[in-house]
């Protein structure tokens, strides 16, 4: 509540009427990935976005990060119109984004170094973050010496080490095995409840979305994607993601959202097969 007052009560992130059209190759029509999408994330809110593959989830996150200017629509961050990169946001990319020429520790502290932190201090913070994501002792490994899941965790530490007010996460845990995944999800919830960042969490996994979030947004199949449903998740916190899946309320919500998604998933699949 305090944070909301300090920031004037404005939403952490407000995407309004966003349309993204990608220019086609010469002579071909362009492709409208997202049309008239509106997504508002309140300060301190944990929002998940689910939708069929290729519908435009990463595109929306790129818009929120300021990496992609939308063809139409407006983006506001804490009430201010966004110009250029979103300085309040940390972005965990879907693709591998670590610098292969830096070891794990150097990657984790990169953001701190870029922002002018003292080196010793930064390394200290970096080591603490590596410990937190379960990679203590792997600090001097290069990317090619780490597994895919380890690289994802290094990237997570890299993003979180900067302590961003808004966290954009694009399928961060899809490369992890089920057990590590549950650990990391709980760790994320712990972190989040400590200082209530605003989180936009993209995932394919509806169960993951429900167990983590305050709200789940379902996107339609592309092209011209837009949100087709929003579901408030009124499960009690603090949560343990491995236990919460057994609650009757969880199962009920899952059923409801899944029914809404199913037709979109099938539609999207059929369209991509054409």
């Amino acid at each position: 509540m305090k944070a909301v007052l300090e920031r004037g009560g404005a939403a952490a992130l407000a995407l309004e009427g966003i349309t993204c059209s990608f220019a086609g190759a010469a002579g071909e029509p362009g492709y409208t990935a997202v049309r008239e999408a509106t997504l508002v994330v309140e300060d301190g809110e944990f929002v998940s976005i689910v939708g069929p593959t290729g519908c435009g989830k990463s595109t929306l996150l790129n818009v929120a990060a300021g990496l992609l200017a939308p063809s139409a629509g407006s983006v506001h961050v804490f009430g201010q119109p966004l110009a250029g990169l979103n300085r309040h946001a940390g972005y965990l990319f879907q693709a591998d984004a670590l610098m292969p020429w830096k070891c794990a520790l150097e990657n984790v502290v990169a953001g701190l170094v870029f922002r002018g932190a003292a080196r010793e201090q930064a390394l200290e913070t970096g080591r603490a973050w590596l410990r937190r994501v379960g990679l203590e002792g792997f600090g001097d490994r290069f990317g090619h010496q780490l597994s895919g899941g380890m690289r994802k965790r290094v990237a997570l530490a890299q993003t979180l080490a900067l302590d961003p007010a808004i966290l954009l996460m694009d399928e961060p845990f899809s490369a992890l095995d089920v057990q590590t995944r549950v650990l990391m999800e709980n760790e994320l919830l712990d972190l989040w409840s400590a200082d209530r960042k605003s989180v936009v969490f993209v995932t394919h996994d509806l169960e993951e979305a429900i167990s983590l979030s305050d709200r789940v947004v379902v996107l339609s199949a592309g092209p011209e994607t837009h949100p087709i449903g929003e579901y408030a998740i009124d499960l009690p916190r603090p949560r343990d993601v491995s236990e919460i899946r057994l609650l009757p309320r969880f199962i009920e919500l899952h059923g409801r959202i899944w029914r809404a998604m199913k037709s979109e998933v099938l539609k999207g699949y059929a369209r991509q097969r054409q």
Partner: peptide, 23 residues
């Protein structure tokens, strides 16, 4: 992606040169 990531982490054009383009 690596470039976008470095920019999101706050790299200035000079830092990009030193930490991304040069290596």
């Amino acid at each position: 992606v690596i470039l976008a990531n470095a920019r999101m982490l706050g790299a200035s054009p000079r830092a990009l040169l030193r930490h991304v383009f040069l290596p």
